[in-house]
Design a binder for these strands. Structure first.
Length: 357
DNA sequence: CCCATTTGACCAAT
DNA sequence: ATTGGTCAAATGGG
């Protein structure tokens, strides 16, 4: 299956990614040394931002002749770490095989898009874990893995119930390098259409959910708004926690709510990020922030990329667009009862709201 | 009291 | 039977 990208485009992308990876490695090295001047960090960050933007622009313009029916074709993958031994092509083949099998026999297995990312954590900077990738996760399990030194943690989206968001992730600490975490994402977030959470109560205190509820379009959203509030609370908390980091150097600060299940503490969003949010109808992705591995792929082709900047896409179910856009206001229950959420993959990547300019 | 995490049990896939 | 993944009761924090 061809994804529509020309060879030149692919090459261009890979070159950009490579440059970005190198820049990130450089930054890691610099951040290790205490003697790195502040300006170096900032320069590197700006360098990375430039890469981000370039990649974004490239992808927004899309592959040549690509039909944009699927909306955004790809997000820029996040936080590529080292290029070390990433089994890119193997994974690609694997994904391809899976996909073929999936097409041939409609296996009723729940195969969600899955990709892994690696996050390195500066252990001494008070950062406790790789966990803040911009989404609200709820831990639901932990398991000792055979042959692994550290247990694996299982997280699901906080909004699984209320918004039928089936994104999950697994966090596995690396054996040899305890500062390295491998995070496997499964499924994508569909929780952002929590609509009217835009009014960011600048006071995170327990405002009455009921009041907001009247603002909410539906009746069954009571619990939802409650969770939203808690998310907002989390946002604020995290935002303050992370202030110590290098993130301070970043010119853009986000209104700390607004994005569904997204947390917005990744303050080094670039302008392109803002554009994203707008284009995607409030469905931002924490692109590329080195601290935010959550890099959602939104691609028309199930396996457009196999190894994109350190993010290994393992396989991806073909995207089924269940278009509950803002027009449909009660999509959750509908999906809940009429469709198997897993099989249908209620993810609605983006119905290309952004492409009509 | 509410909510998130912990943790052993359970289940499903090899 | 073993292992990875999820559930859900218990626990603990705010």
């Amino acid at each position: 299956m061809e994804n529509g990208w020309s060879w030149e485009q692919k090459t261009l992308i890979s070159e950009l990614i490579q440059g970005m990876e190198l820049a990130k490695q450089l930054r890691v090295q610099f951040s290790g040394t205490s003697s790195s001047p502040e300006s170096t960090d900032m320069l590197l960050q700006r360098l990375l931002n430039s890469y981000e933007k370039a990649l974004l622009i490239l992808r927004w313009s899309g592959p040549v002749g690509q039909s944009h029916t699927m909306g955004v074709t790809a997000g820029v993958p996040g936080s590529p770490i080292s290029v070390n031994g990433s089994p890119g092509s193997d994974e690609f083949e694997k994904g391809l095989k899976d996909q073929q099998e999936l097409n041939d026999v409609s296996k009723k297995r729940k195969i969600l898009p899955r990709w892994t990312d690696q996050v390195r954590v500066n252990s001494e900077t008070g950062l406790e874990g790789p966990h803040d990738d911009g989404y609200s996760w709820r831990k639901y399990g932990q398991k000792d893995i055979l042959g692994a030194k550290y247990p694996r943690s299982y997280y699901r989206c906080t909004f699984r119930i209320t918004q039928n968001c089936w994104a999950t992730k697994q966090v596995q600490r690396s054996d040899e390098d305890p500062n390295l975490f491998e995070i496997t994402y499964r499924g994508r977030h569909t929780c952002s259409h929590a609509t009217n959470l835009v009014p960011a109560p600048s006071s995170p205190e327990k405002q009455e959910q009921k009041h907001n509820n009247s603002n909410n379009n539906n009746d069954n959203q009571q619990k939802q708004s409650l969770e939203i509030l808690s998310t907002i609370r989390n946002n604020l908390r995290v935002a303050t926690e992370n202030l110590d980091n290098r993130e301070m150097a970043h010119p853009f600060s986000f209104p700390s709510t607004s994005f569904g299940c997204m947390k917005s503490e990744n303050s080094h969003f670039s302008l392109s990020e803002l554009d994203n949010s707008a284009l995607l109808g409030g469905f931002p992705q924490p692109f590329l922030s080195q601290a935010s591995p959550e890099s959602n792929y939104f691609m028309a082709s199930p396996f457009q990329v196999s190894n994109f900047g350190g993010v290994h896409l393992q396989h991806s179910e073909s995207e089924i667009i269940s278009a509950h856009t803002s027009a449909t206001n009660s999509p959750i229950l509908d999906i809940d009862f009429s469709l198997d959420p897993v099989e249908i993959d209620p993810n609605f990547p983006f119905d290309t709201p952004g492409f009509f300019s």
